[in-house]
Design a binder for these strands. Structure first.
Lengths: 330, 330
DNA sequence: TTGTAAGCGTTATCAG
DNA sequence: CTGATAACGCTTACAA
């Protein structure tokens, strides 16, 4: 590998001058500049990133932490993040937290050890204080998640409104006995709580009380959805609609309902969340809430790059709006 | 950030000794070793990776290049790769080639500039010579892809056999007019060609000739599948079965067929490929060919780490076997 | 078993 | 406008 010294030698200039050319400094004569370019070309020279980093430069790498990449929501998000990063000459170091505190900590340390310039977190496992303590090593941005009372910037959709819209749609269609799934663990923070609020608000608007027997917590997968459906099937008083919180759970509910001989939406209306590809594929197609994933990715990277360049943020808390996609399951 | 000098100072030892402790060198007294550990702990010391790299060490990062992460096959593969990498204390730098030569080249350069120790390629865009020229900067491994006449190690499934098994299943069920989709562009290399061979072989076994009107090239998405189905619907002589080459295309075919009022498999049997989650979700559920993704990921990382450590490989060309999953679409 | 010192490839500072 | 030099944090001969 050619080094800056090789280029210097070949041009008869000093390393300093070559470095200046590489970094587009002003006050260099046209001739020498071109001389350097030529030599770099001939030698196939590439600056050594490790040396640059050691010297205190940026790494041109941003870290992205997701719970699991196989969740389509996150693979689409990472897709968007990676593309925007690439356009800005940044690389993405992707990491799965697997919803484990220690894996998240491991990754936060990459910021500390300067392996990434900044971090986009799409999941939060550790306490606020822990995560905030890492901000002194570089900018952190929450994407699709947040911690209340935290100064860490956020890009997210208004989950409370999203749940409200979804629930209201069910109410508008005349359903009154609405079940509810949440991925949450009753934590006092983050997006699950917001969804709960939106759900409750919609019910309140219609003076309906929540039937706690119809609330299912800690649900995530298709299998969870099937399980929920079996539980419902065994109830004396059954709901007539369900707000699932994810297309995957919704798909599980529908699959199980069909195998139990039930009709969707006649016997049970099913509302998804995310508008993933399966929403269109399942029969009946899912009514669901579309999140602006691409936009969220674009804005997140933009904001993080601003933070990296110490440019001001117009807002620390960017909120995107969702859209109801009505299909056949409600 | 604490440096090795801080640790040295605090312990009253030299940087060299501290370094030896960090790197588990032999011939260090127990006392000093523990002294160093204690100081590292107290200072929250973490070795600076850039300095280590500059000094010629490994980066503990492997690069993984995929065409698009939103393709479930690849998100599951990356999931597996990342998990095994993590267990071995490696990080994954994920990159999407987007099927573009220049993006792939950009990423290959990370090997040249020592930002990754080795590379796992799950897609190949550039010519053999180009890619091979990068092997002098670090090990490259093909996963689920390969180039003939190349010395680059490979982990893959026997695609020819997979296509053979799938086609044979259709023949065994009595279908004789079999259509065929390929993602390929008629290149002379790689897995698409192998599938073609397997498909042809199965037909040959039954003395059936390929009807070129039923061969569809460059198909990848659900939308492509819908398009294929519309084309078929417009034909005078229609196939009675289709080997799609991916669950996504198969899903598109089925969705469009249903909206055209056709029955699956009565009017058209549909064979998927991959056994992605949608295979179970679509109605009728897809008969498909299951690829051992998890295993492929595990073996790939293992092999690359061996290469990194200059350990011998038992075989340069590891072939995994597939399994036919029979459901209701055939 | 431990310490000294050189060097990895850059860039910033200072001097010219 | 250009050059010499030090420094970033670490590892490894070589010496002791």
């Amino acid at each position: 590998m050619a080094t800056i010294s090789d280029v210097a030698e070949r041009t008869g200039l000093s390393k300093a001058t070559v470095s200046r050319v590489i970094n587009n400094h002003p006050y260099i004569s046209k001739e020498k500049r071109e001389l350097v370019y030529k030599a770099m070309e001939e030698l196939g020279y590439q600056p050594n990133p490790s040396a640059r980093r050691l010297r205190g430069q940026l790494t041109n790498t941003i870290g992205v932490i997701v719970p699991r990449i196989v969740n389509p929501f996150f693979s689409y998000l990472v897709d968007a993040l990676e593309q925007v990063a690439y356009e800005n000459n940044y690389q993405v170091l992707m990491f799965q937290s697997d919803e484990k505190k220690d894996k998240e900590l491991y990754f936060l340390n990459l910021l500390k050890t300067k392996q990434v310039d900044g971090l986009i977190m799409t999941a939060i496992e550790n306490e606020r204080e822990v995560i905030e303590s890492y901000t002194r090593f570089g900018p952190i941005l929450f994407c699709n998640e947040y911690l209340s009372q935290s100064e860490i910037p956020v890009v997210r959709v208004d989950q409370s409104k999203a749940a409200y819209i979804g629930t209201k749609h069910l109410l508008d269609r005349g359903y009154r006995k609405i079940a509810y799934c949440t991925g949450g663990l009753f934590v006092d923070d983050g997006k699950d709580k917001d969804r709960n609020i939106g759900f409750q608000k919609a019910l309140n608007d219609h003076q309906i009380n929540i039937n706690t027997a119809w609330v299912f917590i800690n649900k995530h997968t298709i299998e969870d959805g099937r399980h929920v459906m079996r539980q419902i099937a065994g109830m004396n008083e059954k709901p007539d609609a369900i707000f699932t919180g994810s297309d995957e759970i919704a798909a599980g509910v529908i699959l199980e309902a069909k195998s139990l001989g039930m009709k969707i939406p006649e016997d049970l209306a099913v509302m998804g969340f995310d508008d993933q590809p399966i929403a269109e594929m399942i029969d009946p197609a899912l009514t669901t809430i579309q999140q602006p994933i691409k936009e969220m990715g674009t804005i997140s990277v933009d904001m993080l790059l601003r933070l990296l360049k110490n440019q001001p943020l117009d807002q620390k808390h960017k909120e995107l709006s969702v859209e109801l996609v009505i299909r056949s399951s409600t």
